[in-house]
Design a protein around this nucleic acid. Structure first.
Lengths: 234, 234
DNA sequence: ACCCTTCTTTGATGCGGCGCAAAATACTTG
DNA sequence: CAAGTATTTTGCGCCGCATCAAAGAAGGGT
C-alpha cells in the first residue's frame, strides 16, 4: 500500500498553519479512497464513522425527504472537508454525499477529529471557520428562498457554481462538472421544466450557453444583475 | 454595581460540565444588560464586539435584505447563546437580534471567546454543538422551503415555536411571546394575508386558537399531520 | 451503427398564493 | 373615553410556476 505524502494536503485551506510534522501526523492516519462516479462517499442516516477531505473531483451533498424528494445542499470542491457534522456532536450523517465524477478522497475515523482539533489548534479553527461559513451559506439560502423569484434563485445558483468551479473557455466560464437541469432545480427549489425554460431564454439573450449536463456562463455581469433583481429589459 | 452569581448560568446548556470555579471565572467577566422590548441586542453588519447569553425573555434574530425585506432566522430562548458567529471567524454580525419582550442578557467581549473555549473545553464543545444544531436547522429549513407548500411550512413553524416556548394553558399550548401574522410570514416565506387565512381556517377546524399577537395550538397532533403532508380531510 | 436510456425541450392547462384594497378589530395614549 | 395606531380579516383578480403530456436530442453500451 502506497504511503501518502503531506504535499497532497499541505496547500489546502483546512491545513493552513500546520507545520510539516503536524501534516505528517495527520496524513499518517488517513486512508485514501477512490469513489467512482455516482457512488456515495457517505449516506444520510448512516453511522458517521469517518470524516473526509476531497482531494480530486466533485461531490454533491444531498438531503432526501421522507417522501423521496431530493434537495442539493451544496457541491464540494477539492480541498474541502465533508462529513464533519459528526465533529459537531452528531453520530449520524445528516446528508448523503455522491461523487459527480470519479473522485479521490481521504478518510479519517470520526473519533480522531477531536484529537486533531486539540492537538492542532489551527486545524480546529480552520474547520470551525468552515462550519461557520456553511451556516452563513445556509442562512443566505433561506433568505433567498424566502424573498426571491425562481429566476433570481437560479441565476444565483449558477453564479455560485461558477465562482466555485468556473473554468475559463473561449465561450465563457464553464461549470466544471456534469450539471443537469434537474440538478439546478434541486438546488433552487423548482422543477427541471422551469430551469430548462429559463436557460433557453437566457441563451437567446446571450447570457449563458448550455448543453447536456453542461452550463457555461457567458456574461456573468448581466447574470448578476438579473440575480440581484434589476429588471433588465434591453 | 451588583455582582453576578454563578447560579444564574450554572444550569444552562452552554455551561454544562463546567465546575463552580470555572463558572465563576466566566461570569466574572460578563456584563449584565437589560434590553427593553423592540430594542436591538446587536445589529447586522455591525462590528461583532460581544457575544451574548439570553438570561430572560425572548429574542428574534432577523436578516434584512438589501431591499429592506426581513426574514426571521430564529427565536432565542433563555439559556441560549447568540451573536457567536463572531466566534467562528466573522468580525461582523450576520444578523440583527431584537428583544420581543423585555430581556436580560449577559455579554462578553468577543475576543474572550477563544480564551474561554481553550481554557474550558466543555464550554467550547457545547458551543460547537450549538452551532452544529443551528446548521442542521438551517438545512432543514432549506429543505422545507424547497419541498413544502405554505400551509405545511406554517404548521411546522408553529410546532417548532410550541416546542421551544409552549406553555400549557386550559386551551392548549400557548406560544409564550407576542407573535404576529407578519412574524409568522417572515419565518415561512409567505405573506401575512396567507397566514391570516390559514389561521382562521385552522381555528374553524379547532386546530389552533389565536388572537392579536398570540397563538395557541390546541391539537398539536393534528397540526403535525398537516405539517407532514397527510391530506387530512375529516 | 443501432437501440436504449437519460436528459432536454416545448406546449397546454390550472391553481396556489401574492398583490392590492378596504374594512374591522384590538390595543394605546392623552 | 375618545382618538389614534397597529394588527388582523376578507374579497377579488391575476400571474408565476407547477403539473401533465409528449416529442426530440444526445450519449453509451454492445
Amino acid at each position: 500500500m502506497s504511503r501518502l505524502d503531506r504535499s497532497l494536503i499541505a496547500h489546502m485551506a483546512p491545513f493552513e498553519g500546520l507545520n510539516p510534522a503536524e501534516l505528517d501526523r495527520m496524513i499518517g492516519q488517513a486512508r485514501a479512497l477512490r469513489i467512482t462516479k455516482d457512488h456515495a462517499v457517505f449516506e444520510q442516516e448512516q453511522n458517521a464513522h469517518s470524516f473526509f477531505l476531497l482531494l480530486d473531483g466533485y461531490v454533491r451533498v444531498i438531503k432526501t425527504t421522507p417522501d423521496g424528494e431530493e434537495v442539493i445542499v451544496r457541491y464540494i470542491s477539492p480541498g474541502e472537508l465533508m462529513g464533519i457534522a459528526s465533529a459537531l456532536g452528531r453520530t449520524t450523517y445528516p446528508a448523503s454525499a455522491i461523487a459527480v465524477v470519479d473522485c479521490v478522497v481521504l478518510a479519517w475515523p470520526s473519533g480522531m477529529w477531536s484529537e486533531f482539533a486539540s492537538a492542532f489548534p489551527n486545524f480546529g479553527a480552520n474547520t470551525y471557520r468552515t462550519v461557520g461559513n456553511r451556516l452563513q451559506d445556509a442562512h443566505a439560502r433561506v433568505v433567498e428562498m424566502s424573498t426571491e423569484q425562481v429566476d433570481q434563485r437560479v441565476a444565483h445558483a449558477l453564479l455560485k457554481l461558477v465562482r466555485q468551479s468556473g473554468k475559463r473557455t473561449d465561450e465563457g466560464l464553464l461549470i466544471d462538472f456534469p450539471l443537469s437541469r434537474q440538478d439546478i432545480a434541486e438546488m433552487t427549489g423548482t422543477t427541471l421544466h422551469t430551469v430548462s425554460r429559463l436557460l433557453t431564454a437566457w441563451e437567446e439573450q446571450g447570457l449563458v450557453r448550455s448543453g447536456r449536463q453542461k452550463v457555461t456562463v457567458v456574461e456573468p455581469h448581466r447574470l448578476l444583475m438579473l440575480a440581484e433583481g434589476r429588471t433588465e429589459k434591453t
